[in-house]
Amino acid sequence: MSSAISRIFSEGFRIFFLSAGLYGVFAGVAWGIWLASLDGLLPYDEQSYGMPPVMWHAHEMIFGYATAALGGFFLTAVPNWTGTPEVRARFVTVVALIWMAGRLAVWLSGSLSPTTVAIIDLSFVPILVLKIASQLIRRPKPQNMVFLYLLSLVWVANLMVHLEWIGITTDTLNTGVRAGLLTLCSMIAILGGRITPAFTRNAMKRDGVPEALWPVSNAPLEKAVMALALVLPLLVLTLGSVSLAGICALLLGGAQLMRMARWRAGWALRQPILIALHLGLMMLALGLLLWGSAVIGYGNEIGALHILGIGCVGGMTLAVMSRAALGHSGRPLVAPSPMAVGYGLMAAAALVRWLGSGLAGGYMTAMLTADGLWIAAIGLYLFSMWPALTGPRAAKHG
């Protein structure tokens, strides 16, 4: 038992990807209980919390679940990018405990002072940034250094949420939540644009597909996506720039569709672990187009935000975490059947939640259904990846 715990805390991808899965299920169940209470299906005492449950839900999906996925990814990927040693188990343990303390503080916000909750919750990202900055500086490539900027924006967005909860501001919470989500989407646009065509290309090469049929990236288009992705969350953080941010989102969504047109998603359909990446980025493009349209007056903004939050962030985190867990634990890069089903359920959850936003009747049914699909998708991820995240590294495969 002790050796298993030591193993889990020994590498960033293990503890953080496991924590993301466990917390994703917990947060989904808690949200479902509250939704059921609105219909009188279950009792609920809102006085136990220091914030409205709707805001707890939004905050913890963005700054709880997603930041765990970020922690596992960057602590694992950055040493590979820079050729620096792997992060020591002691640091992994400390920073993981800080992330967990943040989740506990937010959950217990009804009995803690808002300032205490903010201090604990805001501690994780700066420590993560300092650590990866110390590694990136060894080989400071601009395409990697931009993630320090985006992680900093995640922290600023979270700060804006806490400032309103503390009572220092009166109008920064909604901005902070949207900025946090769109910053995650910007990271996915940049990182997904790097790994999705590359992984697809590698798989096609292994299968002997002629090079003329491999995914193609257009350099000017890639630069445009990078620029738009870096600007979008900053526009959202700048109060009063919502319409401009909407236009930026429309441009980024359109550019995302254009770049994906030549990434051979049709060929990737034969490999769930690949198509999951393409699907997550398709949700990114769709969500950006819907959100951009909504903020300039056409469509439902809440539905669009859930396409981004569930379909893009949820879908891409499952795709990247499962692939990284398999690869870094020495296992073949083949998604187990339950994991492949999980990819599909996550996309279905996003679509159900989006459709439910426009329903006059059946809204609560759609909400509960989407929540159930989210829980099932994350549950299948935990079931499929448990050996890779908690077990010994597998023997090298041929």
Rank of each mutant, 00 (worst) to 15 (best):
P233R: 05
L234C: 13
T238M: 07
G240F: 14
V242Q: 12
I247V: 09
C248L: 01
L252M: 14
G254E: 02
L257W: 13
L257K: 01
R262M: 00
W263Q: 12
R264S: 08
A265P: 05
G266K: 15
L269Q: 15
R270Q: 15
L274S: 10
I275R: 13
A276I: 01
S293W: 07
A294G: 05
I296K: 08
Y298A: 03
Y298E: 03
N300V: 00
H306T: 11
L308E: 13
L308Y: 00
G311R: 12
C312A: 14
M316F: 14
T317D: 11
A319E: 08
A325M: 04
A325T: 06
A325Y: 14
L326P: 10
G327H: 03
H328K: 09
S329K: 14
G330D: 07
R331D: 07
L333M: 02
A335W: 12
P338T: 06
V341H: 03
G342C: 07
G342Y: 02
G344D: 00
L345P: 02
M346G: 08
A348L: 11
L351E: 01
V352W: 10
V352A: 14
R353I: 06
R353P: 11
R353Q: 11
G356R: 09
G356S: 13
G358Y: 04
L359S: 11
A360T: 08
G361L: 10
G361V: 13
M364S: 00
T365R: 00
L373Y: 09
W374E: 10
I375H: 09
A377H: 01
